[in-house]
Design a protein around this nucleic acid. Sequence first.
DNA 1: GGATTTGTTGACACCGGTGTCATACGGGCA
DNA 2: TGCCCGTATGACACCGGTGTCAACAAATCC
Lengths: 328, 328
Amino acid sequence: MATMRDVARRAGVSAKTVSRVFNRDPHVSPVTKERVETALRELSYTPTTLATTFRSGRAPVLGVAVPDIADPFFGALAKAVESLAAVQRMSVVMTSLGEDPMREPAIVQSLLRQSLSGLVIAPIAADQSYLDVWAARTQLVFVDRRAAGIVADSFTEDDHAGARAATRHLVEHGHVRIGFLGDSTAIPTSRGRLVGYRAALLDAGIEYDESLVVLGALDRASAAAAFSALERLDQPPTAIFASNARVTMSLVPVLRAHRQLAVAGFGDFPMADMLEPSVTVIDQDPTALGTLAAQRILDRMAHPQRRYRRHTVLPVQLVERASCLPGG
Amino acid sequence: MATMRDVARRAGVSAKTVSRVFNRDPHVSPVTKERVETALRELSYTPTTLATTFRSGRAPVLGVAVPDIADPFFGALAKAVESLAAVQRMSVVMTSLGEDPMREPAIVQSLLRQSLSGLVIAPIAADQSYLDVWAARTQLVFVDRRAAGIVADSFTEDDHAGARAATRHLVEHGHVRIGFLGDSTAIPTSRGRLVGYRAALLDAGIEYDESLVVLGALDRASAAAAFSALERLDQPPTAIFASNARVTMSLVPVLRAHRQLAVAGFGDFPMADMLEPSVTVIDQDPTALGTLAAQRILDRMAHPQRRYRRHTVLPVQLVERASCLPGG
DNA sequence: GGATTTGTTGACACCGGTGTCATACGGGCA
DNA sequence: TGCCCGTATGACACCGGTGTCAACAAATCC
């Protein structure tokens, strides 16, 4: 790989002049420009971003840290970030945080050591105060979940209103015994949705029954186990609110076995409309989350002094399908 | 952010000594070591990978370039690469190549300018000769599709055998008029599958009918259009082979409207087993592809002189579900 | 014609961790 | 005392693109 100094030697000029020609600096005489351009072509010069990055101390790279990059929700989010980054000729490094909250700091910090321009993070740990020292160097934007232990921008969906709307929808279809199936209330998102669920029950004058709340539904096996726990109750639920798309998807086999069961889930997923019954969901918009988060990073880089809204909560929408229709 | 020289000044030693302490070099006296460690702690020194990367000329980063990172197939592939990279304390930069083959070189080269250690690429263009000059600096491994115009490692799935098995499966269920629905034969993968489809017909003594092959099924609308073209034939197909998961998923609404239609698709997808009818597919293993590709990059970095198998074709497996059962 | 401006070009330093080599010092041995 | 060797430590350069500033020539102005 030829460097600028190689090109300079060949063209009989200084490296700086090559730099000027390469960056279309007008202060170069046509003759010199011609000579340099020939040398550039002959050596097929390709710049390394490494040197510029090192000098500026900031890589033209945005980071994306999410629980699982293979999850369609986060995949769409990452794709949106990447689209905006591409416009600014930036790259995207991504990392999956996995399941273990303890590992989050190590994983995220190894990303940050690369002097990213910005980081979009959907955290899994209960505390992000470890990010405090990095905030001065890197634009941090939280998505899906707010930051804890540190002040930072966030873009989240309206968990409370969404869960409330979904639950109300079930109530309006005549259900009184409504189960809540979730993963873990350690995650703020789930907690918010549980609160929304309770609010809807309160609205309808239905008493909250803790035994209807079952957590730990992470895959098909655990979802089935969680459901059979509900089924064994004296008054088993006739409807279920699933607190996220993964739970809903895990629950699909159960739905096929219990056709009379009504379901509404938080988070749309591929093929939800093609199942029988098609599944009523609260539609989230990962693309919007990713786009807004990336845009905020770019805005803050361009206008550091400007003031921004700290927390943005995106409205969510009920997508009514067949899974809570009477007899559905 | 404190640099090594900051720490050195505070500890009253040279930067090199700080470097030695930080890297656990045994040639440091206990007294000095203690002083330096105190200074490190007091300034909460965090190294930048930028300097080391710049000096070594190689970033501890693997690239992943795929058509669409939001596609579950490529998401799983990227996740597998990331898992292996993490073990070596490497990061992963990813990029979506999109739909336009013309843009592939520019997108990929902007990744490569970052002096990646390796690149896993599932290309969309018909020619990758532009990567020739990069191969000396960066380990290139192709996945899902082989390289064209350049010699490079590849890990692909057995398109021919998979398509042949799926088509044979349909034949065995009594179908003679079998449609082929694909995206574009410009993509080698699709071409290989079309050849496999024809081979299965030949095996069964069924004459190949070009009017049964329809391309351009990219989303639900175009898939529906493609299907209605088939439907208008004198002898419309009674079964369809869909050449990839996206096509199959786009075709699902059609299946619901035409319950007598048998389908087999190349590539599994979430919920395929929960649809009615559940969809018979050729199961690909994106995690295996990603793991093997990343492993090859790491192997080649560790043992540059060793010889490796250029092309690895992974076997695929028929997952029989309900979509080709009689009357299904 | 001398002073000032405008335009072209290059020397040099910088970013920060680290490989290379030199230096200094202490101990062992002839 | 002189020599050698091993250990501890530091000076310096390097990676490569580019910002800063100076040098110099040509053009313009009074």
